[in-house]
């Protein structure tokens, strides 16, 4: 599993502690993901790609494209979110007061 099991939080509840409650383990996962990424990049010269498009053949295309896509997606979404964000009652407001109190 290449699961995203990392968290920066530490649980304070007294019940049975899970492995994830320890911040150190979170770090381990974080570094594990980075390690895996590096490994996958290092594999690049050792297999034959059959690219449909020329850019697809560039070094580590899938890796860096995916990284940029995701980072870009979240960052763009974040700024879009600031523009489009409204209170949860946004659509209900009119109905209750009968006025547009935006």
């Amino acid at each position: 599993m290449n699961g995203p099991k990392h968290t920066s939080a530490s649980s304070s509840s007294g019940e049975k502690q899970s492995w994830l409650d320890d911040t150190q383990n979170i770090d381990k996962i974080f570094w594990g993901v980075i390690f895996l990424s590096v490994i996958l990049m290092l594999l690049e010269p050792f297999y034959y790609k059959k690219p449909y498009f020329s850019f697809e053949g560039s070094f580590g295309f899938y890796g860096w494209f995916s990284f940029l896509a995701c980072a870009g997606l979240v960052l763009v979404a974040r700024s879009l979110g600031r523009v489009f964000e409204r209170g949860e009652e946004y659509y209900d407001a009119d109905r209750n007061s009968g006025e547009d109190n935006r």
Binding site: N2, F30, V33, S37, Y62, G63
Partner: peptide, 19 residues
């Protein structure tokens, strides 16, 4: 391999963004 690269780097992006 390409698919794994896609997914892991996606996860990497997420991890970095969260961190």
């Amino acid at each position: 391999i390409n698919q794994l690269q896609t997914l892991i780097f996606s996860a990497l992006a997420f991890a970095l963004l969260i961190r």
